[in-house]
């Protein structure tokens, strides 16, 4: 390696390094926002499912949105987004198969919920909605830390 390439490499590394870290931080912020959007739909839908409010015609909106988000949650944890201000546990990346399965369980539950919304079957509605919260909880238990 001659001195020119070495200098060039060092220059390239100093340019890339901070942007690399910054990119990770941006991914984490984006991920948090998407998760919060999911939670917002979850909470709103729960108030309709539980009969607290009567916006039945809006339930489909929440179900659709949740399905859309459930389909992308798996993409929000790329390699190198495992450091920075995140509560995602190392296991997301060290146990990718189990993580993928947890994501799929959630997608499955959301898809059942969408079918129940379409059919209007009350029991299926409550049952499938419970499955969604179960899948959220079980994934958070394994893959999200409560510790600082």
């Amino acid at each position: 390696m001659n001195i020119k390439t070495l200098t060039a490499s060092i220059a390239l590394m100093t340019v890339l390094a901070p942007s690399y870290a910054a990119e990770s931080e941006e991914i984490i912020k984006y991920r948090n926002s998407v998760m919060e959007a999911y939670a917002g739909h979850m909470s709103a839908a729960s108030r309709i499912v539980r009969g607290k409010v009567d916006f039945q015609d809006q339930l489909k909106l929440h179900a659709d949105s949740m399905a859309g988000i459930a389909n992308i949650t798996g993409t929000l944890f790329p390699e190198d987004s495992d450091f920075g201000e995140t509560r995602a546990k190392e296991e997301v990346w060290s146990k990718p198969k189990e993580f993928e399965q947890a994501v799929q369980e959630n997608q499955q539950a959301v898809s059942e919920f969408n079918k129940a919304v379409a059919s209007g079957d009350k029991a299926a509605l409550a049952g499938s909605f419970k499955k969604i919260s179960d899948s959220c909880k079980s994934c958070h238990e394994k893959f999200r830390t409560e510790e600082e």
Binding site: Y38, A39, G40, H41, S43, S133, C136, H140, E141, E146
Partner: peptide
């Protein structure tokens, strides 16, 4: 009712789902 629902499902008022020790206590 919100608390009872949380005890059944682990879903908080804001729609977040509990994790860690509390998830196990719910289950």
């Amino acid at each position: 009712d919100d608390l009872v629902y949380y005890f059944e499902t682990g879903t908080t008022l804001s729609g977040d789902s509990s994790g860690g020790k509390m998830a196990s206590i719910i289950d």
